[in-house]
Nucleic acid binder design. Structure first.
Lengths: 158, 158
DNA sequence: TTGGTTGCAAACAATTTGCATCTAA
DNA sequence: TTAGATGCAAATTGTTTGCAACCAA
């Protein structure tokens, strides 16, 4: 998350932080959206939040940075963050949505949801991109996005 | 769907209809649930409904059979139908759920959702069973269920 | 100055639930 | 007879929206 206070941030950290923040600011400007304290607080909370989080989680985290952030503004800012590709939505079929930072997106990822702990794991699933394309192909279509989700339980040790 | 009215139902049709109904009635009895007119109407509407449908769609269809069926009873009966494996839930990430009859389930099916028409297509995806297992395996888990969904658009004709 | 933003509270929409009444077994 | 079912309407819950006050550009 935020820099370890026990030492000065490394140049590398600074560069990374600035890059994402810059992307966000540029995105706002490019769309004639204003750069407000609330949006910056939500960005910081959203981009550096570890693991998956709900809108409510994000509301809490953003308030810790700027207590004036309202729930409505969180909900209004989430689509902007998703659109700018800084975070992504992870819908696992609950009645609320999860989000997570897009810090270092590599290959396609599937979600494995543990039925016992409800934890959501992101797992590399490199073949999916191709396989989803093959499935869509059967209907003469091309994929825009896809998701593979596996509800699973821990294997019993033998 | 229902028998062609231009001819007498074949013995085969009759057997199929009776079988599903019997499964439902047996399921109810086995769980000490009562066999009511409303549940029978909902079963019939749910099991013979073509394609995917929402709870609201089902409510309409069931009312056409028995006008006394309330929305609450539809919602209360859906889990029973899913549990008895006569229908299955198809969650495509909207704010309401879809259902569809489990008439002849063969291999694993993926959903392809057309971004232009919103139509949901069920497509055989025989490898998924194995692939989902492989993905869960990476975490030392075994799959309980899985879903592959592809949002797609029609390919442009060249 | 002014058009985009905000917080608040009310509005929404799908689904669930409390309760008095009904009914299958 | 009686435990389970039903319809109705109210409640729930995550999310959206109208609006007057605000404020970034």
């Amino acid at each position: 998350m935020s820099a370890d206070t026990s030492k000065v941030p490394t140049p590398k950290d600074t560069v990374k932080v600035d890059k994402a923040l810059e992307v966000f600011k540029n995105f706002l400007s490019a769309h004639n959206f204003r750069i407000t304290d609330q949006r910056l607080a939500i960005f910081e909370a959203a981009y550096y939040h570890p693991e998956h989080y709900t809108a409510e989680d994000l509301h809490d985290s953003a308030r810790a940075i700027d207590s004036s952030v309202s729930r409505a503004t969180v909900y209004r800012t989430l689509p902007i963050l998703v659109e700018s590709n800084l975070i992504r939505e992870v819908d696992v079929g609950r009645d609320y949505k999860y989000y997570m930072a897009n810090r270092e997106t590599k290959t396609f990822q599937a979600q494995v949801i543990c039925a016992e702990t409800d934890t959501i794991y992101e797992v590399d699933a490199p073949f999916m991109e191709w396989y989803g394309k093959a499935v869509a192909e059967k209907l003469g279509m091309e994929p825009i996005s896809q998701r593979l989700q596996v509800i699973a339980r821990p294997k019993k040790k033998v």
